[in-house]
């Protein structure tokens, strides 16, 4: 994982592109050096630093790391409904990688994630609109955009289920007014995943917007003043100042959005409904996990799915951190 290269203590490069190239050849300033000096400090302070982080570490160990290890173990077993297991080696993984449902659910999850990610450019644009000087009711708009994010996913899903209804839904009613015969959104394979993803996009917009708005506040107003004096248009300012200086925030919301999209379950489950015939064709990875673990009671198999989800998210996130050097500006 390359996260340590983001350490606040490492030297701040003036040009990110050059820094990324320079760092590997300059080990004295690299993460290795920073770590050894930090380690010495903690050792010198005795037990106190450990005591201070103990509550958090204990909680995370008991509720996160230990279950991860247990899951890894159970993925190698045939695990009974009420406890009790027999060792099964890699049987679960062999069966899983031969199961077309795995690839189907990975495909659906990727499609869902891609659509939800489209919300980020929208959020950047909206955030900069909300940040325009002199905009009235800016806080009101911010609250309105944020509301879907804090609403219960199940409640959101119930409302959208009604909107998407093929015969009596608001959406198809509106489409009919302009002469379009809308599909049965939540009961047509393909359309169902897109329909759920649109709701996912809509409900994650508020979160991205708030983070990006905070990022915008960090951009010095002088930059815009200077640009204005040089005769740059609003659009030009947006492209050449707002977006580049906002890239750290954009990177952050991208990471968070990807991780949460890969774990989509509640929206899908609540919008489509558990007896929906298209569900097996539209299920996400976590729904697949839920179905095997809690519906058909194949818990060892479900543990193997959980491990695969874990690995996929880990790899995708690592790749994102590696790629960020190419496009994220840091000051």
């Amino acid at each position: 994982m390359t996260s340590s290269s983001l350490r606040p203590g490492s030297p701040a490069p003036s040009l990110p592109g050059r820094a990324a190239r320079a760092r590997p050849g300059n080990p004295a300033h690299g993460p290795g050096g920073a770590r050894s000096s930090g380690g010495g400090r903690i050792a010198g302070d005795g037990i106190w630093p450990w005591l201070f982080i103990a509550p958090l570490v204990t909680g995370i160990s008991v509720f996160y790391f230990w279950p991860v290890l247990q899951t890894a173990f159970y993925s190698l077993t045939d695990w009974g409904v009420f406890g009790g297991w027999t060792f099964a080696g890699v049987d679960n993984y062999v069966a899983l990688f031969a199961d077309p449902s795995l690839y189907l659910s990975i495909g659906n999850t990727l499609l869902y994630t891609a659509i939800v990610l489209l919300g980020i450019p929208i959020a950047v644009y909206l955030a900069s609109l909300l940040n325009l000087p002199g905009l009235r009711f800016a806080s009101l708009y911010r609250v309105l955009f944020f509301l879907p994010y804090v609403a219960m996913p199940t409640a959101v899903a119930m409302v959208w289920r009604v909107i998407y209804n093929g015969d009596f839904g608001l959406l198809n009613h509106a489409l009919a007014l302009v002469g379009i015969d809308g599909p049965y959104w939540i009961s047509t394979p393909g359309a169902a995943t897109v329909a759920v993803a649109i709701v996912g996009l809509w409900s994650s917009l508020g979160f991205s917007l708030i983070v990006l708005a905070a990022g915008l506040k960090n951009i010095p107003p002088e930059m815009y003043e200077a640009a204005e004096l040089d005769g740059a248009s609003r659009w030009r300012q947006f492209r050449s100042i707002t977006v580049p200086l906002l890239t750290p925030s954009i990177f952050f919301v991208t990471i968070v959005t990807v991780i949460s999209s890969f774990q989509v379950f509640d929206l899908l489950y609540a919008i489509l409904g558990s007896s929906n015939p298209v569900l097996p064709k539209s299920m996400s990875l976590v729904y697949f996990f839920y179905r095997e673990g809690f519906v058909t009671n194949d818990k060892g198999y479900a543990a193997a799915i959980a491990m695969v989800i874990f690995l996929i998210i880990g790899i995708v996130t690592a790749v994102q951190f590696r790629l960020q050097k190419r496009w994220v500006q840091s000051d």
Partner: peptide, 23 residues
Amino acid sequence: RRTAALAGAAGLVLLVSGCSGGG
């Protein structure tokens, strides 16, 4: 967030992981 989410993916099975062996 990343650690939490990584662990969260597997943490979903937390619900069923608290059991001792044997019916």
